[in-house]
């Protein structure tokens, strides 16, 4: 009896920290199989590559917290980078104004999603699936599906360092800490959790849930555009397949980090860990010269596993949510009985 309880507890702890456990295990395995894996240079490298996945994962976390989903982030990255890229090429726009343009485009893209979800009441999955196709369609039409080569200034920006830390990592850290701050310290942050937990109850509590849901898609759009711009500064060109399928990595990173697809559970630190983990696996597979064609499968397998853990956690949470109609038997006190009032009719 006693040992089974200990086992149960250990299992619960592992379940609730499955990603961290996985992170450590994967890190050690790759490190042992390839000594070069542990070098600072390599670690910096995969964290840097994780940066843009991480940034979209942060935006995705906001959406997932409301029990929504944003499938359009890859297309958003593409479209905002295409527009800022075209402006850099045609009228010689500088890097920072171009970044601003990209962010505005991305946020407007998010606003379209938000409008469809909140006011047209299209389910988030379908609404953002539609904008995924439309976004890439517009981008392809604008470029006539040709590749845009970005100017030299963009490359300089992409390789910039601050105190020896690469620019993408700095941007990533700023985004994560801002998001953490918003979610924990601002009223809207806590209201996002409330809406994700129970939208009806949120309405009854007087929360404007439409405003809350609208804002998460804006945030996701903003983050996608920022991530797109950083990715563009690394590869210095925007072609037709730019950022294609990135929504998958972002969702996976968030879920890996413990964000529930059912809403209301998770935080951005988890998304950070998840994004780095995904990138680490990819780098590790390359180091170990795993067949290039097998790599996506291994990644998918890891993601599937964590989503499975998520559903286990959810099943556990479901137990806590069931509606009680009588006190739990664990309570020592007696079930309430009515006080006996002398009844005139029977005297």
């Amino acid at each position: 009896m006693k040992s089974s309880r200990v086992l149960q507890k250990t299992w619960n702890v592992l379940l609730n920290h499955s990603t961290l456990v996985l992170f450590v295990v994967v890190f050690i395995i790759f490190g042992l199989s390839s000594p070069r894996f542990f070098t600072l240079e390599n670690i910096t490298n995969f964290v840097k590559q994780a940066a843009f996945t991480g940034i979209i994962a942060v935006g995705m976390t906001f959406v997932l917290l409301t029990a929504g989903i944003d499938l359009s982030v890859g297309s958003n990255m593409y479209l905002s980078s295409v527009i800022s890229g075209l402006l850099m090429r045609s009228i010689g726009l500088d890097v920072l104004p171009a970044l601003l343009v990209a962010l505005v485009v991305g946020t407007l893209f998010g606003a379209v999603n938000a409008f469809s979800v909140v006011y047209l009441r299209i389910t988030p999955f379908m609404a953002t699936l539609a904008t995924l196709v439309i976004g890439r369609g517009i981008g392809t039409a604008l470029t006539e599906s040709r590749q845009i080569d970005l100017p030299e200034r963009m490359a300089t920006f992409g390789q910039a360092h601050l105190l020896g830390i690469p620019m993408p990592i700095i941007a990533f850290l700023i985004v994560v800490s801002t998001a953490y701050f918003v979610l924990t310290r601002l009223p809207i942050g806590r209201q996002i959790y409330a809406v994700g937990n129970d939208r009806d109850a949120a309405e009854k509590a007087g929360i404007n849930s439409k405003r809350v849901i609208f804002s998460v898609y804006l945030i996701s759009g903003f983050c996608a555009a920022l991530a797109g711009f950083i990715l563009a500064s690394q590869v210095i060109r925007v072609d037709r397949s730019f950022a294609e399928g990135r929504e998958f990595d972002a969702i996976a990173a968030a879920v890996l980090g413990g964000v529930s697809l059912f809403g209301g559970v998770g935080n951005v630190i988890g998304a950070l860990v998840g994004a780095v983990l995904i990138q680490m696996v990819q780098t590790g597979l390359q180091f170990n010269q795993v067949n290039l064609y097998l790599q996506p499968m291994v990644r998918a397998l890891i993601i599937l596993m964590t989503v499975f853990f998520d559903s286990l956690r959810e099943a556990q949470a479901e137990k806590l949510r069931r509606r009680f109609i009588r006190p739990l038997d664990g309570d020592k006190t007696e079930v309430h009985k009515a006080p006996v009032v002398p009844s005139q009719a029977n005297t």
Partner: peptide
């Protein structure tokens, strides 16, 4: 039936609408 947010704290539940 109760209208509380199980994922938030007692304090947050009380003040959720007007922190």
């Amino acid at each position: 039936e109760l209208n509380l947010f199980t994922n938030l704290s007692i304090a947050e539940n009380i003040f959720i609408e007007s922190f």
